[in-house]
């Protein structure tokens, strides 16, 4: 089975349109199991209730933002080793630096192509196929 098909991915973003774009990109890359959450709180709840190997999370979200979610994930031993990729805007260099301090595995600058999505995921998991 290709690597991508074995990875369960959680997409966390408050915009349904962006979740759809990320999901369709993941499907192109061979991902078969994706879950979605509206914000960091819902994302954390899902992570504590089902096996997730990869989180792709936006930063700007209500309730719990992407950085808060990252910190919470790294603070919960059962899920603290989950791969975490942060979605950022072009002007978010400070955010990327803070996310690196909190243990983010990679970041993805919007708008991004499927090729870039693949590149960022493969930097964490190795070749997907």
């Amino acid at each position: 089975m290709p690597v991508a098909a074995s990875i369960h991915c959680l997409i966390v973003d408050d915009q349904q349109t962006i979740r759809s774009l990320v999901r369709s990109g993941l499907q192109e890359l061979g991902f078969r199991t994706t879950f979605e959450a509206n914000d960091g709180e819902e994302g954390l709840r899902q992570m504590l209730n089902r096996p997730i190997q990869l989180v792709i999370s936006d930063y700007n979200m209500p309730k719990l933002d992407g950085l808060g979610l990252l910190r919470a994930v790294r603070a919960h031993p059962p899920i603290q080793k989950t791969a975490f990729i942060m979605l950022t805007g072009r002007a978010d260099k400070d955010l990327v630096q803070r996310a690196v301090q909190f243990g983010v595995n990679n970041y993805l600058v919007k708008p991004f192509t499927v090729a870039t999505l693949r590149e960022k995921i493969e930097a964490v998991f190795g070749a997907l196929q």
Binding site: T17, I18, L21, K110, P111, F112, V114
Partner: peptide, 11 residues
């Protein structure tokens, strides 16, 4: 989706 991402980004 390759084309839509610019509009999504702007919004």
């Amino acid at each position: 989706s390759e084309g839509l991402r610019y509009g999504v980004q702007s919004m």
